[in-house]
Nucleic acid binder design. Structure first.
Ligand SMILES: [Zn+2]
Ligand SMILES: [Zn+2]
Ligand SMILES: [Zn+2]
Ligand SMILES: [Zn+2]
Lengths: 132, 132
DNA sequence: TTATAAATGTTATATTATTACATACTGTTA
DNA sequence: TAACAGTATGTAATAATATAACATTTATAA
């Protein structure tokens, strides 16, 4: 069960925006969109983003410097994330596949290093874009 | 077999620097280090980096905005990359594990999307840091 | 040689993210 | 309630990362 987090005012404004958006959002696009709600500075956005990432409500798509709402309420709070990214339309979706997450969470290599976290990004063409 | 690429002057300067370096290097740190060799502008660095990434001689560590020389001469030219990152000392190494790469290269989910590329970053504490 | 692609040089600018410092709010416990 | 700790906010300035635009040069190959 996931801990219930009471979002603060700014966190809520920013989470709601990202959650409503179709795809990943970039920080300065978020900033632009929340200025009418009184959030004026980049730092206000980045602070809320940091917190939202930390508690697993959103994830950062590292290869795109963009943020997406978690589409998988049962995922291990930002510790194990996998995404599918269309290189044509930039559509992103979170992959929720228990076999994959089990495989990766248990993965260990010859170095003997134990991993507590991973992020995986797959790239390709989505169905729509492939059929064009 | 990997195609032999003849690196241009700037590409060679920058590749050699990254290859010699212990860990991943950031673009502006590269710039600083090659200024004595006549490379003066960020764009010169980024162009070389783009090319080197494209041909698989280096990889970008997305979560760190940094670049590392490919440690795996037989890897599928930047199409399938996996890294282990220590969150304490920031040591990064490229994971070369045929089972893992086979598993991920063949992975497909319910969306029916076929992936041509992936990047995986594992995080944890390396042996040294864990024993501290 | 002529054409084409690839690489370079240079200036300016766009985009992404953090530092530093002051203030306010929220929940806990003495 | 008062004192405290932890979290969140506001604001300005700046750092760090990356690209646009344009002119020129070098390499490759038909
Ligand atoms: Zn998630
Ligand atoms: Zn698409
Ligand atoms: Zn490699
Ligand atoms: Zn370490």
């Amino acid at each position: 069960m996931q801990k219930e987090h009471n979002l603060s005012k700014n966190q809520k404004i920013i989470f709601d925006l990202i959650d409503k958006s179709r795809g990943p959002m970039k920080a300065y696009s978020i900033l632009f969109n929340v200025q009418k709600k009184g959030i004026k500075a980049p730092l206000q956005v980045y602070r809320a983003l940091d917190k939202l990432v930390e508690i697993g409500k959103i994830h950062k798509i590292e290869s795109r410097n963009a943020f997406i709402a978690c589409q998988n309420s049962s995922c291990q709070v930002s510790k194990a994330t996998a995404f599918s990214i269309c290189e044509s339309c930039e559509n992103v979706s979170e992959i929720s596949n228990s076999k994959l997450s089990r495989y990766l969470s248990n993965f260990s290599d010859s170095s003997g290093m134990k991993y507590s976290k991973y992020n995986l990004e797959f790239f390709g063409l989505c169905k729509k874009c492939k059929s064009k």
